[in-house]
Computed example of a mutant assay.
Amino acid sequence: MTDKNQSSNCPLCTKASNVFYEDEKHLFYQCMDCRGIFRSESQRLSNTEEIKRYLLHRDPELDEGYYQFILPLIEEVRSFAKKGAQGLDYGCGQHKFLLKTLTKEGFNTFGYDPLFLDDKKLLKQQYDFIVCCEVIEHFFHPLREFQRLKNILVPQGKLICKTDVYDSKTDFETWYYKNDPTHVFIYMEETFEWIRQNLDFKDVKVDGRVINFSK
C-alpha cells in the first residue's frame, strides 16, 4: 500500500479517522464521529481514469432491468411532486436515463454531471427535487457536495439519493460495493443523520438503498 497512515481526516466532518479495512487493493478509514467510511486519497482515480471506467457502463436503455433499479427514486418523486415540478438529476452520467424517464413522467427535469454535462448554470437555479442515483458514493468532498445540493433546493424541497448503505452486520471484506475504485465514500445510517443535523435538513428517511432528505 502507498499510504500506511493509521489516521486520516474525514472528508465529511473533518475529524481524525482510523484505518477500518486494508488489503492489497484497498485502504479504508472510518470516522468515529459521522461513521463515514472513506477510501485513502492515494487510491483515488484521476478524472481521466474515472471517465474511462464510466464509459464502460452499458446503456441503461438496453437493460430491461434498469428501470426497476431506478423505480424507487421515481416513486419517491411521484409521492410528493406535482407534474411540471422542476428537478435536477445530479450526476446524470453519459446516458441520462433517469433524467429521460422523469421527463417522460411529466417532471421538468434537468441533468448535471461534472464529467459529462458540466453546465454550472444549472447549479445556480432552484429545484423542487434533486435525484442522485448511485452518485454520492463518488463524492471526494461530501460535505461540500451536500451543502451545494441543499442550497439549490426550494423550501420543502427533497434530495433523494440511492446508494448501498453499510451496516455492521455486513462483512466488509466480502462486500462487493467496496471493490469499485470509484466508490470513495461509504455511508452508514448514522452518517445520514449526521448530515441532517449538521446541514440543517428537516428530516432524513433511509429505506433500504433510498435516502430522502427534506429541506
Rank of each mutant, 00 (worst) to 15 (best):
Q6W: 00
S7L: 00
L12M: 05
K15C: 13
E24R: 13
F28P: 01
Q30K: 14
E41Y: 09
Q43V: 01
R44F: 15
R44E: 07
L45G: 09
L45Q: 13
S46W: 06
T48V: 14
R58S: 12
D59A: 11
D59L: 05
D59E: 10
D63W: 02
Q68Y: 13
K83Q: 12
Q86E: 13
L88C: 02
L88Y: 04
H95T: 04
H95D: 04
K96L: 11
L98I: 11
L99Q: 14
F107N: 02
F110G: 02
G111N: 05
Y112A: 07
D113M: 06
D113C: 09
D113I: 07
P114D: 07
P114Q: 06
K120T: 14
K120D: 14
L122K: 15
L123T: 04
Q126D: 13
Y127G: 00
F129H: 01
V131S: 09
C132Y: 06
E137V: 12
E137M: 10
E145C: 10
K150P: 02
N151M: 08
N151R: 10
L153Y: 03
Q156T: 15
L159A: 03
I160K: 03
V165S: 06
D171M: 07
F172A: 10
E173F: 08
W175R: 00
Y176F: 12
Y176V: 04
T182Q: 05
R196E: 10
Q197F: 03
N198K: 14
L199H: 02
D200E: 14
K202Y: 05
K202M: 06
D207V: 06
D207F: 04
V210T: 15
N212G: 00
